[in-house]
Design a protein around this nucleic acid. Sequence first.
DNA 1: GGCAAAACCGACCTGACCGCTAGGATTTAG
DNA 2: CTAAATCCTAGCGGTCAGGTCGGTTTTGCC
Lengths: 156, 156
Amino acid sequence: MLFSTKAEYGVRLMVALGRQGGDRPVALASLADAETLPLAYLEHLVAKLRDAGLVSSQRGAHGGYRLAKPAEEIRRLEVVEALEGPIAPMDCFVDGVDGRVLCSHESDGDVACSTKFLWTRVHGGITRALAGTTLAELIEFESRDRKLNTVAAGAA
Amino acid sequence: MLFSTKAEYGVRLMVALGRQGGDRPVALASLADAETLPLAYLEHLVAKLRDAGLVSSQRGAHGGYRLAKPAEEIRRLEVVEALEGPIAPMDCFVDGVDGRVLCSHESDGDVACSTKFLWTRVHGGITRALAGTTLAELIEFESRDRKLNTVAAGAA
DNA sequence: GGCAAAACCGACCTGACCGCTAGGATTTAG
DNA sequence: CTAAATCCTAGCGGTCAGGTCGGTTTTGCC
């Protein structure tokens, strides 16, 4: 698998947040319930989303989370990267500075190894697909899919 | 990281094979040496490539491996999939049949969950980039890159 | 025939990470 | 004060990556 469930859970969490999102924060337990995902696990994920500035939290009773930005401005790439770390098709792609072997081709100077070069295509394909989708689209898609337009686009 | 070093090593192995590839087989030790990769580990990888029909082997003294098909007909996607298994961005994407939660959205019938739907874009981006590159291109790229045309295209 | 070079095969080992749970500490509305 | 919530840290079982090792088999060559 390319992505773990972290990314999946996280995106679903964000979508659920966006759907339920009024002005007051939504308790994580409510989201976990709606998505039938383990609450304790979501706590870890949402912490990363918070650190990445994608959601804001309010502690204490009647606290919870809300989107830190309007859904239109949240790209899926941000969500995935916040949870999975930087998207790099290969190890040598991201750092390649330490002493390890990794790309033997690199050893002779500045030359980028051919495989590495080609990974950039893959990288581009992924990030393009991921960056080209906003959370708002996902929310809308899902609302349409479920045929309940209770909190649809017209609300705001 | 999206892909492990298996894919990387494997591709490099194939490229090296294509470069050294005359009519007689190349010993794995020679490839391991050229790429400074651990021989014992490559043995496992090349076994998968063999099972996938990408390389053919000759046992015994002066044995070794050679490409099973001309480099022009080997797509990078094949190499990667042979080593990493089928490319699926998510778990639920590939099987999603067993009893686990995975896509809670799926539980209510036939509806594909929105996130899953979007993963297909990612999947498309990856496979397109991967399938659109042949081994021959990689070999040529690398030969040009190294500026040593000793065993270049004109040899055969 | 026998030696050495190779492919083959399977077991194992270490470390990391994933998915998840547990239990508590801290903040805050009512 | 208390209950509801976020927050934090620690752990645990499983899987897999990356790699090593030792041995078996095939085969060219002298």
